[in-house]
């Protein structure tokens, strides 16, 4: 372990993991914090770049307006789909009780 302040703290790793619906062990949190700090250290080179005039490139293709006609296609078979589900009931996916509303 080095003396330099880590670029990402254990608390941050834990908080981010929870945002991603992952429960990390204490050991994982510590390890990930160091490893992610290394990756972010490596990324320091681009952090320092002045790219103000450069357009971001979200995807490599430059085509626009890829559209589909509003025509119905085949539906999947519900029984086949629900047969793959961990739990189903009354033609629906069954999950443990949902607490709290959707955003």
């Amino acid at each position: 372990m080095s003396d330099r302040p880590e670029r990402i703290s254990a608390e941050e790793v834990d908080a981010v993991a929870r945002l991603a619906m992952l429960a990390l062990t204490e050991d994982q949190v510590e390890r990930f914090a160091h490893q992610l700090a290394d990756v972010l250290d490596h990324a320091a080179d681009i952090e320092a770049l002045d790219l103000d005039g450069v357009e971001p490139m979200a995807r490599p293709v430059r085509v626009v307006n890829v559209l589909r006609p509003d025509e119905p296609g085949p539906a999947l078979d519900r029984d086949e789909v629900l047969g793959q589900a961990p739990a189903a009931e009354d033609g629906q996916f069954r999950v443990p009780p949902v607490l709290g509303g959707a955003p």
Binding site: E71, P72, G73, A75, V81, D90, G91
Partner: peptide, 27 residues
């Protein structure tokens, strides 16, 4: 008021038997 969903060709009709207006993207 479209016939199909925003990004896939499953029907966008209101109601229906549960989980019958489904395709890979919807799922």
């Amino acid at each position: 008021s479209t016939r199909t969903k925003l990004f896939s060709s499953a029907t966008a009709e209101f109601g229906g038997e549960p989980n019958t207006h489904i395709d890979p993207l919807t799922l």
